[in-house]
């Protein structure tokens, strides 16, 4: 297991998720970072897509929130971590929400399960008091 102490955060930025235009902005910022850090085109596309899914979740189910994007380094290995937090009602049954096709908003229900497949690491915390926090990481 990779422990937190070994990781160094080399860059960090927080972006708001309040409107649909913010969503476009999130995609563009993530894309800019990834191309600056020379992630492959396929990795870039996967990560930006996951960011788009999770930002939309935060906007539609959580009533908006923010994304914290950090660039990680563990030795020579680089990665990107995206943390989405909202202040919505939380998710009642996380394991159910993680399944393909689960939806509350009339979508296809691929937001959580799909973005988990696109990233290397996936972590979710949710409670009615503090909303939902989804943290995803992808290593180069």
């Amino acid at each position: 297991m990779r422990t937190v102490s070994e990781q160094i955060i080399t860059r960090s930025e927080v972006l708001p998720i309040r409107t649909q235009i913010d969503l476009v902005h999130v995609r563009q910022r993530v894309r800019t970072w990834l191309s600056e850090e020379r992630f492959t085109l396929i990795d870039q596309t996967k990560i930006v897509t996951a960011a788009s899914e999770l930002a939309r979740n935060a906007l539609e189910h959580g009533g908006g929130g923010e994304m914290e994007m950090s660039l990680l380094a563990v030795g020579a290995r680089k990665g990107i971590r995206l943390k989405f937090s909202d202040h919505g009602p939380g998710i009642a049954d996380i394991s159910k929400a993680m399944k393909d096709g689960y939806t509350t908003a009339g979508g296809m229900g691929l937001g959580l399960s799909g973005s988990r497949r696109l990233m290397s690491e996936f972590e979710i915390q949710s409670s009615p008091e503090s909303g939902t926090v989804v943290t995803v990481t992808r290593w180069k």
């Binding site: 085109l41 870039q44 596309t45 996967k46 897509t49 691929l110």
Partner: peptide
């Protein structure tokens, strides 16, 4: 559709 987009969509489950 670009190859990277197609690969991502499939991975996403669509």
């Amino acid at each position: 559709m670009q190859p990277a987009v197609a690969i991502t969509l499939v991975e996403l489950g669509m």
